[in-house]
Write a protein that binds this DNA or RNA. Structure first.
Lengths: 216, 216
DNA sequence: ACTATTGGAGAGTTACACTATCCGTGTCAA
DNA sequence: TTGACACGGATAGTGTAACTCTCCAATAGT
């Protein structure tokens, strides 16, 4: 297929596809002549993945490029690639004062040790966790209970996530599932959490007329 | 205190504080003369909250303003304000084809009914959930199992979240805790999930030399 | 008295993700 | 076969969001 059809199948405007090609988010089509190229279903899939990572995952273009580069490794070691690729999807923006951040780092280190989590040297996720812990303290919230409870639940979530990865076929498929599951999973979890929070809040603070009409 | 001290205490540059004042993210200081104002600890707290919502929560300025406006309501009904304020913190960007999105909406509706969740008419969170479900399908991933499992876990998370809200003092404090817990909670959960995933992946796919040196 | 700082307003800057325009070439229906 | 349209590729321009700079007259601190 040519670029117009690729555009039609994905809903992505032609100039945007050209931009993604330039940025290396999409592999070049097979050239049939110096200025004609052919695209196939892999391009459609890849383009959809890029859009989803952008729109739902809100990852920057550069991060997506790096992630996809990892996905394209031939015969990858799944665990190793995951250790390299996924931490990139958590953003880090230093904002708190250094002393507070250092204390938060120490707290995270303790948490990891207590739980016996086996983590690579990649400091990215630990950095992200420490920054959030520091942020809680910045606004005067006691994160201690939440941290332990969330860690419990994160472990359970991860079990489901890895099952989701394991069911995919082939190393390539597993990597794809891991990326999709991790990044879209964040958003899915966030949306479900908001709904569950509202439900829990309704139970706790009492229900108003406009909240439920029939079942109560 | 004056603006320079406010800047020093929070690490936010003076021009940025002026910008936040203009944008209504920060209430004006008490004017002592036509061109002199005094700020207090509430401004420090508020400014820190704004920075955290920006840096960790990645909320747009306009969303933060709306959120803070809700926080500033006198004698608020916590549940009602939460129903209005928190959905704003989940982004929505239509990207999938309409038929797929409609099917995803139906799936979410079923999920809510099955679980007996009591939700207000605010369609925001449902929209966000449906978009993520559609996104999973866009990239050819079967979200069915994940959806049920995440919903289970979202319910448990929400219980902890509401406990976190309930322990705060006063309606104002509860609202503050709800905003902080929800928005920073998303990031905290994401970071912990990444670490738990890596640990789970290490258990499942085997451990390499560079992953852990001492404990195995 | 005098220098630095203030509140306030408008314009300018940066980063990012596109989007528009152009050009020479290629395709394809009439 | 010929003429309108689409193509790949390159360069430049646009829109938005979040700042950041510059200027001003008034005031604070010394």
């Amino acid at each position: 297929m040519r670029i117009a059809e690729l555009s039609q199948k994905t809903g992505v405007p032609v100039p945007t596809i050209k931009y993604y090609l330039r940025e290396g988010l999409l592999p070049a089509g097979e050239l049939t002549s110096p200025n004609q190229a052919r695209y196939d279903d892999r391009h459609v899939q890849r383009l959809r993945l890029v859009r989803v990572l952008l729109d739902i995952g809100r990852l920057p273009i550069a991060t997506i490029r790096d992630l996809l580069t990892e996905l394209d490794q031939p015969d990858p070691d799944v665990h190793e690639v995951l250790g390299r690729a996924l931490p990139a999807s958590v953003g880090t923006r230093e904002t708190s004062d250094p002393a507070m951040l250092a204390a938060a780092h120490e707290r995270v280190r303790t948490l990891i040790k207590e739980r016996g989590w086996l983590l690579s040297d990649n400091a990215r996720t630990r950095q992200a966790a420490a920054e959030v812990v520091a942020a809680f303290q910045q606004v005067g919230a006691d994160v201690e209970h939440l941290l332990e409870q969330y860690a419990d639940l994160a472990e359970r979530i991860a079990v489901h996530d890895l099952r989701f990865v394991a069911q995919a076929e082939g190393n390539e498929g597993k990597l794809h599932a891991a990326v999709v599951g991790s990044i879209l999973g964040d958003s899915l979890l966030a949306a479900l959490r908001r709904m569950a929070q509202e439900h829990e809040s309704a139970k706790m603070f009492g229900i108003r007329d406009d909240s439920c009409d029939d079942s109560c």
